[in-house]
Computed example of a mutant assay.
Amino acid sequence: MCGRFAITLPNDAMAQLFQAQPANDLPVVPNFNVCPTNPVHVITASDGARRLQAMRWGFLPHWYKTPTDGPLLINARSETIAEKPAFRSAARERRCLVVATGFFEWTKTEEGARLPWYITRADEAPIAFAGVWQIWGKEDARQTTCAIVTTPANQHMAQIHHRMPLILDPKDWPLWLGEAGKGAALLMKPGPEGRLSYHRVDPAVNSNRASGPQLIEPIEP
């Protein structure tokens, strides 16, 4: 799964990297502890143009009467995304990229203590999570919301968690965004071994109120 991440890339650098027009209301960066329901940086494509915009992390199906009317949908499983009523339309028509620098995952000790790990691309490049999005609500209550697609973990990531976010290479961005025709379903599989690197970080990040660059600094296991 993906339940927390960090973004340190400046907004103008994100816009340049993804060749996208930036919106005026982008979230503040850096943010070393992006949590569910926070606004996140998202790339969408329509009419031959890409846009960098803010979306609420936490997908709201159209039948929710309030944002808390059902489970908080921060992730969408690749194996069922095409059939689940909440996601199937978005999987066909509203795919996006969620931009990150790295993400967090947790293991547990025998005593039940949660040990956080910070995961990045091994080549230190920015991360593009595959995502889906949905506009929810009416008039003043309208929100644009998103979820991150996850897959079963590859062997390397399985040492920490049995699932992982779907991370796309630049060559695959056009296909996922619908710019290169159909076939995005072919991308929904665990990434290759060796793509990611991880290290232990301070348990301070266990709190969703924690902030600061020290949250991603390595500590001794």
Rank of each mutant, 00 (worst) to 15 (best):
M1V: 07
M1D: 10
C2S: 06
F5V: 03
N11I: 03
D12E: 14
A13Y: 00
A13G: 00
Q16R: 12
F18Y: 15
Q21S: 11
P22I: 01
N24V: 03
D25M: 02
L26C: 01
P27D: 06
V28Q: 07
N31M: 03
V34C: 11
V34T: 11
T37V: 11
T37R: 12
N38F: 13
P39K: 03
H41V: 01
A45M: 02
S46Y: 13
S46H: 15
G48E: 01
R51Q: 13
R51H: 13
Q53P: 02
A54Q: 03
R56M: 14
W57N: 09
F59R: 04
L60M: 15
P61C: 09
K65T: 05
K65S: 05
T66H: 02
P67Q: 01
G70R: 05
G70Q: 06
L72H: 10
L72T: 12
L73R: 08
I74R: 04
N75E: 07
N75P: 07
A76P: 11
A76I: 07
R77V: 07
T80F: 11
T80M: 12
A82P: 03
A82D: 14
E83V: 13
E83M: 12
P85N: 09
P85C: 08
F87V: 08
F87P: 13
S89W: 08
A91L: 05
R92L: 13
E93T: 04
L97Q: 02
F103V: 09
F104R: 09
F104N: 12
E105Y: 02
K108G: 01
T109K: 09
E110Y: 00
E110P: 00
E111N: 12
A113T: 06
A113Y: 02
L115Y: 04
L115H: 13
W117C: 11
W117G: 13
Y118Q: 11
I119M: 14
R121I: 02
I127Q: 08
A130H: 04
A130D: 06
Q134Y: 12
Q134S: 14
G137R: 06
K138M: 09
K138C: 04
E139I: 02
R142S: 09
T144S: 15
V149Q: 11
T150D: 11
T151E: 14
T151D: 13
P152F: 11
A153W: 07
A153P: 11
N154D: 09
Q155L: 08
H156S: 12
M157T: 06
M157H: 04
A158D: 12
Q159P: 00
Q159K: 13
I160L: 15
I160W: 07
I160V: 15
H161A: 08
I167E: 10
L168I: 03
D169R: 12
D169L: 11
K171N: 10
D172V: 02
W173P: 01
W173S: 01
L177K: 10
E179D: 04
K182W: 03
A185D: 15
L186R: 13
L186P: 00
L187G: 14
K189H: 14
G191M: 08
G191R: 05
P192N: 15
E193A: 14
G194C: 09
R195A: 15
L196D: 03
L196Y: 05
S197W: 05
R209P: 00
S211F: 05
G212I: 02
G212Y: 04
G212C: 04
P213N: 08
I219Q: 09
E220D: 09
P221Y: 00
P221W: 00
